[in-house]
Design a protein around this nucleic acid. Structure first.
Lengths: 188, 188
DNA sequence: GTCTATAAGCAGATAGAC
DNA sequence: GTCTATCTGCTTATAGAC
């Protein structure tokens, strides 16, 4: 794998785990055994440019991964629950959040850097679009599919944050358990 | 008002608006016209101790405020929607988040500082307890009241984050609109 | 394209006068 | 209890050799 991709992959993981400001450039470089010269060659605008590259990479990876999950599972409900299971598994084995989430980066950077905010916005848009399309095929109207997709995203991201706060996987498990109550009874 | 309280109030606002790391000690001191000596006199452990004091203050303020809202409104649904309205109003007038939320601080600090994580955890616990108690009086079982309180918290915090990302109040409005669908049909 | 060494600036924290 | 001046360490970023 080339140096540039290596840097992006390493940085993505670290940013997701610890946030943006809590990870120093030196730490990233040490973790992937790359020097400062190489970083500023590939990313002239430094750390923030690297972050945006990470978000773009994450966008592609997440889109492919979620589309795959939605192919495997017949219903939106099952697909979403499978995604949540993956997040819980991540949290239990690694103790940190590395999957379909990057809300920490939003919280930290959205008010401070406009390009970063836009990259994050694009990412959520893509995820919600996948949910939304699937819901439409299940008989939801465009409008309620859109609302439901937004709600699922908000619930998952919020639950993730509560898991982090409580050091527990209960919030995500609870959301997963409750999802059927809203997804049922609204079809068509 | 004494210097200590002034520092806490000023810092609370700035932390909520821009996060923890994006606000420098100097910025806080300048904003409330206090010097470094005074800060380290009142908070020997510096910035992090100040943050924890902010979270404790926020805890009291939020608890009082929410309890008040719950007294004014007969049902949980109306109370929560009134809270969301307040958040939306905040977002529209000031462009930043300053109300019943501090998820940015969680995202930034929970993995890094244990005392901060605990202070945040306590805060969410209190908020959820108020929701939960109210739901029980409305006929919910202990268990489903607990789950519902958690879900409402997750939804609101997640929606808040999406509002920040999209620079729009739509996510919060959508959540507020959809809440009745889960709060109905589960009573008793 | 990658290296090392160094710069320049700012963060949080401290010491000691008043 | 509050002030000013100062310190240390760490941050990102650059310059120039290879």
């Amino acid at each position: 794998m080339d140096t540039k991709s290596l840097m992006i992959d390493t940085a993505t993981l670290l940013f997701q785990q610890k946030g943006y400001k809590n990870v120093g450039v030196n730490e990233i470089l040490k973790a992937c055994n790359v020097t400062k010269g190489a970083l500023y060659h590939h990313f002239p605008n430094g750390k923030e440019e690297l972050l945006i590259a990470c978000l773009k990479g994450l966008n592609e990876a997440i889109t492919i991964d979620i589309e795959d999950i939605f192919k495997k599972h017949p219903s939106t409900l099952e697909a979403i629950q499978s995604m949540i299971d993956k997040l819980i598994h991540n949290l239990e084995t690694e103790g940190t959040i590395t999957g379909y989430t990057f809300s920490s980066i939003v919280s930290e950077m959205a008010t401070v850097s406009e390009p970063v905010r836009q990259a994050c916005s694009l990412l959520y848009e893509n995820m919600e679009r996948i949910y939304c399309d699937k819901l439409v095929t299940e008989g939801y109207s465009q409008e309620s599919a859109f609302e439901m997709a937004l709600w699922m995203t908000a619930s998952i991201e919020g639950a993730m944050m509560l898991c982090l706060t409580q050091k527990s996987t209960t919030p995500l498990k609870t959301i997963s358990k409750l999802l059927p109550t809203i997804l049922k009874g609204r079809t068509s």
